[in-house]
């Protein structure tokens, strides 16, 4: 079976039921290592549940999941870091303290964790914000700190659940480019869940489109439209064609 392949994530016939509610039905998907895979779908199609299953926080009712060949929930949890839509920064910690929390959790003390986190924090364009309190940060900055925290967990797999869902359109566009750059510098096996087709096509290498409840994968397409000039890209015929196909599949 494909799950023997090194790296990446394999989902085989994953079904999740909560009582009578079928959240996910027979989802099969392969996420290759070191790429960005987008999952697009309407609200309530079980995208978040899918990520929680991958992360080992939930177990599927049926089907198998493996992350880099590991299939037990504990082993999956060891390999995945989750970034939720709301940043969930801790107000009793400053920005760098939030970003370095995983290093502290791993042991080694607060001071060392901060020192270890500082270079990456700066590389992500956050230098100067180390000591800011969380309530002093804008929505966009908060998401950057939350992403830094996710990266600093030192996991191979990043699961991003609507990371820009709560931001205004301009900040959102800015962060999409920022994320593309960040993942070029720090490549990880990344799954980006979003309900925004454009965002998925711009940030991801591949996009899987999911249907409304019960969620299943109805289309997979190549993307990789990021990196260029945004305005030109979203007006180009290949982009428009990909967008048309995704929107049609969503309907």
């Amino acid at each position: 079976m494909a799950s023997a392949a090194p790296g990446g994530i394999d989902l085989e016939g994953v079904t999740k039921r909560f009582g009578d509610l079928v959240a996910l039905e027979d989802v099969s998907l392969r996420v290759p290592a070191d790429g960005v895979t987008g999952i697009v779908g309407p609200s309530g199609c079980g995208k978040s549940t899918l990520l929680e299953i991958v992360a080992g926080l939930e177990q599927p009712t049926a089907g198998t999941v493996s992350v880099e060949g590991a299939s037990t929930p504990g082993a999956r949890l060891e390999r995945c870091a989750l970034m939720p839509q709301s940043d969930l920064l801790l107000p009793w910690r400053d920005a760098l303290g939030n970003a370095s929390v995983a290093l502290e959790n791993a042991g080694g003390g607060r001071r060392r964790a901060r020192a270890e986190a500082a270079p990456l924090f700066a590389r992500l364009g956050l230098d100067g914000f180390e000591r800011r309190r969380t309530w002093e940060l804008s929505g966009g900055m908060r998401q950057r700190v939350a992403f830094a925290r996710t990266l600093l967990a030192g996991k191979d797999v990043l699961l991003l659940d609507e990371p820009f869902g709560a931001l205004d359109a301009i900040t959102r566009a800015e962060l999409q480019e920022w994320l593309t750059d960040a993942l070029r510098v720090e490549p990880r096996t990344t799954v980006l869940v979003t309900h925004d087709v454009e965002e998925a096509l711009l940030v991801c290498d591949r996009v899987a489109v999911m249907s409304a409840r019960p969620g299943r994968v109805v289309l997979e397409l190549d993307a990789g439209f990021g990196g260029g000039e945004r305005a030109a890209t979203i007006a180009s015929p290949p982009f428009l064609e990909a967008r048309r196909r995704a929107l049609e599949a969503l309907r």
Binding site: E52, A55, L57, L77, C80, A81, L82, M83, P84, S86, L88, L90, W92, V101, A102, E104, N105, A106, R149, T150, A153, G154, K155, L159
Partner: peptide
């Protein structure tokens, strides 16, 4: 405590005690 916080902390290498110290207690 918001259970979402606990879930995210678990993916950030937090043990039960780390979750208590860094999330639940404050």
């Amino acid at each position: 405590v918001d259970p979402e916080h606990v879930r995210v902390m678990r993916t950030l290498r937090a043990s039960r005690t780390a979750i208590f110290r860094r999330v639940e207690l404050p």
